[in-house]
Each structure stands twice: as C-alpha cells, then as structure tokens.
Write a protein that binds this DNA or RNA. Structure first.
Length: 279
DNA sequence: ATACCATGAACAG
DNA sequence: TGTTCCTGGTATC
C-alpha cells in the first residue's frame, strides 16, 4: 500500500527493470488504451518520484503521470513473457527484461512538462529527495501553523510522501501528540521530526515495506524469533508501534484512535502526552 | 452473496 | 464536512 516509499521504490524498480527499453504498452482494462498507444514502441528514459507522484518520460516526449491513491499498486514480472494481465490492469509496459503492471491508480494520464511542473509546484519538500532546504521549509510551515501536527503531516503541501502509517509512527517515535498545534513544537523537535521522516521513509524504500518496530525487540511468549520471509509484511499485526494497534507496543497502554484530517489516527497518550493542549 | 475496510485526495457546498 | 473515485482482502451473513 502506497506512501512515498512505495512510489520511490517503484521509480527505482521501473528504471532498473525497463530503463532504456523500448516498451510495448497496453491497457488490458481499456481505460487507458488511447494513451497507451501513444507510449507504445517508445523508449523508457527516466523515472522521477515526487512525494506520492510518479513521472515517467519516454523518447518522443511523452510524459506519464501516476498517482496510486489508496488502492493503486505496481506489480513487476521479471519472467517473460509475463502472465496474462488481470482485468483491472490499467497499464502494462513490457520491456526486454520485465513487465510492469499498474492497477487501481487514482491518476494515470499523459501530461506535458507544464502539467508536471504544476503538480510538483503544489508539493512540499519530500524527505526522500536530496533537498538540502527541505527540512527548513518543513519547519517554517509547521512552526507557523495552528493546525495539529497530525494534520500537517498529512498535508502534501507541508511535506510530500507521508501517509497515515508514517504519520502515526513518526509522531510516536518523537513522543509528539498528534493534536499539538504545529507552532507549539520547538525548533529542535521540528528538526528531529523531519529527520525521523527521512530515516523512516528511506528504510521503507529499502525494505519495500513499512517496518518501524524491530520485531526482535518485542517480547514474545516463546522468545523465539520469527524465521523466513520479510518480517512485518505478513498478514496480521503490522510491524508498527501504534498504527493499527490496540495497545502500545512500548508500554502496553491502550492506543487511542480517532479521526484526524480525514483519516484514522493512532496514539499512545502515555508515550505521547498531550502537553500544551488546551482541550 | 454482501459489507466493510484500507498506507489517498479531489471536489461540492 | 461530506461525497466520490480507484481495488482487493477479509469478515459476516
């Protein structure tokens, strides 16, 4: 499921697996058929991720803009020929080494450079892009705002690429209550929060999954470590401190969950005391 | 078979 | 603030 790490990983993967290739483009679902025809036979040149937005450029000048939304996903098939696409595959790109399937995106369209620039201009700093001024721009917005920090983190004009899981986990790890107004944070706390996002998202790209809690650090009845597979990616309890949890995995207090900025928010009010909240 | 839920965001009013 | 769109997995009858 997509937050910024998913998109940056998809950018890496598609460049690795299809960069430089002439691609066969199709839209098994049909909804992107006319546009796919314009990419078909073009060479995939570059892939660029900005927050949760992905831009793929082809020679001939076509530029593909993808946003996965809540349900979208990329699938890669490194064995050719790839299996038959399912009915919901919006776009399939087949290169010489792999096939890439896109399904369920909120946005999948061809844009011109001005369209791309317009999207990027509305995005805040992305913790996954090398941007020396990113932390400063983030801090400026946070420290000037009366909005809750838990809402600011979901605002893509404040910081691009953070979603509901990283919101919950970054605030937990920084001992910040989600309802604290941005301007009640200290400069130091704001800088630490930015750095936390950088580290968490980078780790998410590396793993291909959001794992914020080391499973080995969690008490287990048997004391046995899990073996095999990527920990945290199996179904069941997510590898998180508070996101989706009933109890805090650090102190075992009940995790409170409520709606904040249109999404369910999770916090341990013992580890994240509501300091400075007037109610 | 149906309902509901999920790591998102645009749009209406 | 509420509605809408995108898909698939799990829960509930």
């Amino acid at each position: 499921m997509p937050e910024g790490h998913t998109i940056h990983r998809a950018a890496q993967q598609s460049l690795l697996l299809a960069g430089g290739d002439v691609v066969v483009a199709s839209s098994p679902q049909g909804r992107f058929a006319a546009s796919a025809a314009r990419i078909d036979g073009a060479r995939l040149l570059r892939v660029d991720a900005w927050g949760k937005h992905l831009f793929t450029s082809f020679d001939g000048g076509e530029l593909l803009h993808v946003h996965l939304g809540l349900f979208g996903r990329f699938a890669t098939h490194e064995q050719l020929p790839p299996p038959s696409p399912t009915e919901s595959v919006r776009l399939r790109l087949v290169g010489s080494r792999a096939a890439l399937d896109l399904s369920g995106p909120t946005i999948c369209r061809l844009v011109d450079p001005a369209g791309r620039d317009g999207v990027v201009a509305r995005l805040g700093p992305d913790p996954l892009r090398r941007d020396p001024g990113g932390g400063e721009r983030f801090a400026t917005r946070v420290l000037a705002s009366r909005a809750p920090i838990g809402a600011l983190l979901m605002n893509q004009t404040v910081v691009a690429g953070v979603g509901n899981v990283y919101r919950a986990e970054a605030l937990f790890l920084e001992s910040l209550h989600p309802e604290r107004p941005g301007r009640t944070l200290s400069v130091e706390a704001t800088a630490a929060l930015w750095q936390r996002l950088v580290v968490l998202l980078r780790d998410g790209v590396r793993r291909g999954a959001i794992v914020t809690i080391d499973p080995a650090l969690v008490e287990r009845p048997s004391g046995a470590l899990r073996r095999g597979g990527a920990t945290g990616t199996r179904r069941g309890r997510p590898a998180t401190w508070v996101y989706g949890q009933q109890h805090c995995r650090r102190c075992a207090a009940p995790v409170r969950s409520w709606e904040l900025a249109g999404r369910r928010c999770y916090a341990c009010e013992v580890c994240q005391p509501p300091v400075g909240l007037t109610g």
